[in-house]
Amino acid sequence: MGEYKIGSVVLKSRAVLAPMAGVSDRAYRELCMKFGAGLCISEMVSSKALSFNSKKSEQLMDISDFERPCGIQIFGDDPDCMAEAAQRAMQNNPDLIDINMGCPAPKISSNGSGSALMRNPQLCGEIVSRVVSVSNVPVTVKIRKGWDDENANAVEVAKICEQAGASAITVHGRTRMQYYKPPVDYDIIRAVKNAVKIPVIANGDIDSAEKAKSVIEKTGCDIIMVGRATLGNPWIFSQINSYLENPEEPLRFPTLEEKFDVMVGHIEKMVEYKGEHMALLQARKLVAGYFKGMRGAASLRNEAGRISTLQDLYALKDKALSANLI
């Protein structure tokens, strides 16, 4: 496998972990990097909240040595506030700064941030330019196809961001109005790839090693970004890396015991970083992901939604194992 770079940052592999609010915390990033992710990005951090010295936002930017290379993603709609946020982020020594111009969530886009920025390409350029001017690491941008089908301006925004100094562009092949439902438009990612000279990262519905290879072939992208398909499935990275290197080699899938050992280790690490109460509240949907496709999955997911201690988790693991090994 060749070397993949974003600016001066050398990636560990071609498949990288997407930033996901409420999911890609420090414990999750460390886990995915252990399984072969080439790069990870923090949960998105509000530039406005940082300007008000939000402790919670500061904590989102904690990076450990076990998750490098790691970027910090910031969002907002004011160039000066975003530049200040980038400077604050730099205190955590990230390997890159990522700017969110793709989040479709109403609470983000209704305030002019995230995917709403794509309605104002000039402002996109101003934000990138200001952030680049204060950053001593590469600055990347995550965009969508556009706001809606009538305004599918990913190519225009990507070129503006490149001109403003961005070192890479991630493109999610849906518009903001489509959220995550319709099929991804991989043609728009290819169009962006053909329009810029910086690396392009393809994002959207990459849920297997075979799909990763297919997306690379369809789009010509340099790197692929995997998000929701990693839930309960961090070994997707080792599978993608193996398949890209040698498609003839059979893919290795974890046994149930291995899967549950990873699940427990993941949640225990969350408890170490956040304390048991907060970690287990956040872990409920993550634990549910590990039961996907198993016998009694619906019932197990239902129980996962009620766990509140590590002892609950251990008991649920034993129940899931016994139910699926009969």
Results as ranks from 00 to 15, higher is better:
A229C: 11
E272F: 02
Y179F: 15
V171T: 01
L117K: 00
R68V: 01
N324G: 06
L17R: 10
Y179N: 12
D62G: 09
C70P: 06
Y180S: 15
K269I: 05
T140N: 12
V262I: 15
D261T: 08
E258T: 04
M177D: 11
E217L: 05
A323S: 14
S238G: 02
Q282L: 14
E249T: 09
G71S: 13
P138W: 04
G204L: 02
Q87T: 08
A212C: 11
Y179D: 11
S299W: 10
I198S: 01
I97W: 04
Y243Q: 02
E245T: 08
S47N: 01
I326Y: 13
P234Q: 06
G305W: 02
Q122C: 07
I189N: 00
S135F: 09
G227K: 09
M44W: 04
E156W: 13
V192K: 08
C40P: 00
L300I: 03
A304C: 03
T309P: 05
E303R: 14
S13K: 07
N136P: 03
G265A: 06
R88Q: 15
A279S: 10
A154E: 08
M101I: 05
M33N: 01
R295S: 09
K142Q: 06
Y28A: 14
S238P: 00
V287S: 06
E276L: 03
I41R: 01
G293T: 00
K181S: 14
E162K: 07
C161A: 11
P104R: 08
L123K: 14
L300H: 06
K55C: 00
S57F: 04
I206G: 05
N151T: 10
E3P: 00
L321Q: 05
A191T: 03
N324Y: 07
I127E: 06
R295P: 01
A166H: 10
G76P: 04
P183S: 06
A105I: 09
G265D: 08
A89C: 07
S51G: 03
V271S: 12
L321R: 01
V155E: 12
E245K: 08
K193L: 08
G114L: 04
P138V: 00
I224M: 13
R295A: 10
V131Q: 02
R284N: 10
N120E: 11
G146Q: 13
A49M: 01
Q122M: 10
E258V: 02
S51T: 06
L60V: 00
S135E: 06
Y314L: 07
K213C: 12
I326N: 14
K269Y: 11
P250F: 06
N153M: 07
P254D: 09
I6C: 12
D261Q: 11
A37D: 03
R176F: 07
I326A: 12
C81L: 14
D148Q: 07
S54V: 00
N302G: 12
I6H: 08
A158D: 10
D187S: 13
K218A: 15
G125K: 05
I6D: 10
G102I: 05
E162L: 08
V200G: 13
I41N: 04
K48Q: 11
Y4R: 14
